[in-house]
Design a protein around this nucleic acid. Structure first.
Lengths: 249, 249
DNA sequence: CTCAATTTGTTCGTATGTATG
DNA sequence: ACATACATACGAACAAATTGA
């Protein structure tokens, strides 16, 4: 344990064989070894990662359990299948496309047990409304949960169509509600990690990476009528950003 | 090991006390417990995470080593210092703001040892140029590296100003180069994890979360003259997205 | 067919780390 | 603090399958 991995290992303390497994998995996902191809031999991997033979084997064991590789005595270890792209969840960056994507979502409502937390509002994000209604829900696709949603809706707005807000995604409802004038919609996104509750709902490991979206919609009076905090599984989100089209810098 | 955590624990295989430590660290970073405040008692944490007392202590040991908390026998465990907000790296979503931010960056060039990988180009991202020049570099701030950059520049474009491309960030150079007409600039962003090389350069733990940006610039002929893959530390990036301003959905 | 080289499979002993009650 | 059980990691040696000379 004195190789290149030693320092990184000390930084993370995660079991070595798991680290090696992730590194190998990544190399397969990246296409360095494609389906049907033979990966490096145990000996090569030993010396490359500077770990014991058994440790490499333990790592490859995991990949084999995942069905990613197949070992053949005397021949080598082979990639069995290409890894499918799991980044199917397109996070939208414009209002209309966002609305369009979540238009037909049917969230599963979660009971709000405790007193709901007050909406997280930065000074520049708008003035808080007098009162908020708090809704929590889970978004799923093909039965697989992918996002945990906590939404604060200005009470006045919520009362305009409570049933709609409880059965559909909030933003599409908001955008079509007569009498509600939206002035600004803003979103910030950071990378986070799953706490225990999130891990439980999204079927993730504790501390698995997540994408945390914070979305604020203000009306023409500058009041934040919608404050949403959405935690996505990190392994399935993808962001498309058009920086420039048809113009010049 | 039969509590609420049992399943999540099995999902990750990372040592329990590390998972608990990360969870606690997160709660401090989030401001649930602020500097000087007392965190939950061992008993509370035991039952909350459903782990043995010693395991919680082991987790808190780590935080104490990091200087994040201080234990006092008979009194409790206290947060010693506030955690600084590390989300200072604003990932830009428009061409002009992007250029402006990285305008003055001075990248540290990395030697390109191996034959450079061909640029990753999806069919819809543009036609590949005849030849590319490959440049790798590290972006730092206050001496702290935060991004690992691999850029493919069309040879014809690179040859227009090789010194500039080797001493400054590529995009600002590109945007001011006479004779180069930019038609489209597009970026995708996914959450990834640090491989060994990345971890080494960015001083991260192996498999620590990262933000992987893939940026393609095409000229008016539809040729991809710039293909950049940028890996950011996941813990310091933040994305600001204006979904809507001053209009209606 | 045999032989050697290659490559994965198996086992042992030891040390240390993790987690429980 | 202790006793216990199991997981992780090492190095080394040997076994078994595959291949090509």
């Amino acid at each position: 344990m004195t190789g290149q991995l030693a320092r990184t290992y000390e930084r993370s303390r995660v079991p070595l064989y798991l680290q090696v497994a992730s590194a190998l998995r990544r190399r397969i996902e990246e296409g360095q070894w494609r389906a049907g191809q033979k990966i490096s031999t145990l000996e090569e991997l030993e010396s490359e990662y500077q770990v014991a033979r058994v440790t490499v084997r333990q790592a490859i064991d995991l990949l084999q359990q995942e069905g990613l590789v197949r070992r053949r005595q005397g021949k080598g270890t082979f990639v069995t299948r290409a890894v499918k792209d799991k980044r199917w969840l397109q996070l939208e960056t414009t209002w209309s496309s966002l609305i369009a994507t979540i238009e037909d979502n049917v969230p599963r409502l979660l009971p709000v047990k405790m007193a709901p937390p007050p909406p997280r509002l930065e000074p520049d994000e708008g003035a808080p409304a007098a009162a908020y209604e708090y809704i929590r829900s889970i978004q799923s696709r093909n039965g697989e949960p992918y996002a945990l949603v906590g939404v604060h809706l200005a009470k006045a707005v919520y009362d305009l169509a409570p049933e709609a807000f409880r059965s559909r995604a909030a933003l599409p409802v908001l955008s079509t509600l007569p009498g509600v004038e939206i002035a600004r919609a803003h979103q910030t996104l950071v990378i986070g990690s799953a706490d225990m509750e999130t891990a439980d709902y999204l079927k993730l490991a504790l501390n698995a990476p997540t994408a945390e979206a914070h979305c604020v919609v203000t009306d023409t009076a500058g009041v934040a009528i919608y404050v949403g905090d959405i935690i996505y599984r990190g392994d399935c989100v993808k962001l498309n950003i058009d920086l420039l089209t048809n113009g010049d810098g």
